[in-house]
Design a protein around this nucleic acid. Structure first.
Lengths: 182, 182
DNA sequence: TTAGGCATGTAAAGTGTTACATGATTTG
DNA sequence: CAAATCATGTAACACTTTACATGCCTAA
C-alpha cells in the first residue's frame, strides 16, 4: 500500500485532480499517511500509464490545465486486490522518541521544549481530526477516531510522566511510570 | 535523526559491533525506530569514515572478524549537536489504517482478520516492552512506557469500535464511536 | 500589496528495504 | 539433522522528500 494505491482508492470515490487528492491527503490521511505533490503527481502518471485511471484535461485560464483522473474497471479490480494483500504494515518512525531515549544527555530546558512541542502537536492533530469526523464513511470515522484516541493517550502520557525526565528527581529510582487509566 | 545518528548514540553508552547494535535496535527501538543490517552496517562504515567512531578488528575463529566500534570525541560532540537539532519528527505510516479507511470495500471476514491481527501485534509489542522496562535509563523507561500506553490505547480502541465496521450495523448512522476512558 | 489558493510537474538527493552471499558453532 | 546464533557486508530496488520552476487570481 503506497501513495499510488491510496490515490487509486480515493479515485474509487470521486474523480479528482492531483491538487484535490493532495487536499484529501491533508484532511484525511495526514496523521497516518502523509504525502506531498512529489509523490502524488508521479503516482497519478504511473496509474494512467498502467491503464488503472483515465485522464481528461480541462483547459483553464491563467492556470495549468486541470487533469481530472477517473478510475477504470481495471483500476477498481487492482484496488480491491491491493486491499486484500496480506499484512498491511503499521510503522512508526519517531525521531522524537529516539531523542527522548537519550534524555539524560539533554538539558532540562531543551527537554521541556521538546515535550511541550510534542503535546501541542498532538492536541492540534486531535482538533484536526475532530473537525472532520462523523461526516464520512464508517472506515473514515473509525480511522479518525483511532487517531484521536491514540494521540490523546500519547499527550496524557507525556504530561503525566514528564517529571521522570525533568528536574532533580531524575535519579530517584523509586519513582514509577504513571500509566493513566482515565 | 537517522539510523546513523542513532548508532552513534548507542555507541555513547558502550562500544559495540554491528551485530550488537542490531540486537539493541530490536530490543529498545523496535516499536518506534526499526533498522536492519542493511541500514546499520553502512551507517557504521560512514561514521568511521567521518571520524566519529573508531574501529578495532578482533579476529575470530570460524566467523568474520568482529569489528568493535568506539565513539570518538568528535563523535560525542556530533551526537550532542544532533540531539539539539530542532523539531524531531514523529511519523506514522500505516497501511493498516489506510486499508481500514476503505472498510466498506472489504468483506467482513477479511476485516475481522485484519483487526484481530493488529490487536495481537499490539499486545505482543506491549509484552515485549514490559519485558525490558525498569532496567534502563530514565529516557529508555519513558520511551518504553510511551510505547506501552499508546499500544494499549490502540488495542482497546480497535476492540471497542470494531462493531462499527463489521456486521449488519454498518449503516446505522446513530451508532457512535466509543472513546473509552478507562 | 501581500499572502494564500489554484494547478502543474521534474530532478536530484537521501534513506531504507530486501535479497543476496558466506560459513562455523551451538542448541534442541 | 535442522534451526538458530554469531558475524560480516553489498547491490539493486523502491520510495519519499526537497528544492526547483511557473504564474494568475482573489481576498484581506
Amino acid at each position: 500500500m503506497d501513495v499510488k494505491t491510496l490515490c487509486l482508492g480515493l479515485l474509487t470515490v470521486h474523480e479528482a485532480c492531483g491538487y484535490d487528492l493532495k487536499k484529501t491527503f491533508e484532511s484525511s490521511f495526514k496523521h497516518f499517511f502523509p504525502a506531498g505533490y512529489g509523490s502524488i503527481y508521479p503516482a497519478l502518471a504511473d496509474l494512467a500509464e498502467a491503464g488503472l485511471v483515465s485522464c481528461r484535461e480541462i483547459p483553464q485560464i491563467g492556470k495549468p490545465d486541470r487533469k481530472v483522473y477517473r478510475i477504470t474497471e481495471a483500476g477498481e479490480q487492482a484496488f480491491i486486490k491491493a486491499l486484500n494483500r496480506t499484512d498491511p504494515q503499521h510503522k512508526l518512525r519517531s525521531e522524537f522518541l529516539a531523542t527522548i531515549y537519550f534524555a539524560d544527555r539533554i538539558d532540562d530546558e531543551r527537554l521541556a521544549d521538546l515535550l511541550d512541542a510534542r503535546v501541542e502537536r498532538l492536541r492540534e492533530s486531535i482538533a484536526d481530526i475532530s473537525a472532520c469526523m462523523d461526516t464520512e464513511s464508517p472506515g473514515a470515522s473509525f480511522v479518525a477516531g483511532f487517531g484521536a484516541v491514540v494521540a490523546e493517550a500519547a499527550a496524557k502520557y507525556i504530561e503525566s510522566n514528564r517529571h521522570l525526565l525533568i528536574g532533580s528527581d531524575n535519579h530517584d529510582k523509586d519513582m514509577h511510570i504513571k500509566v493513566a487509566t482515565g
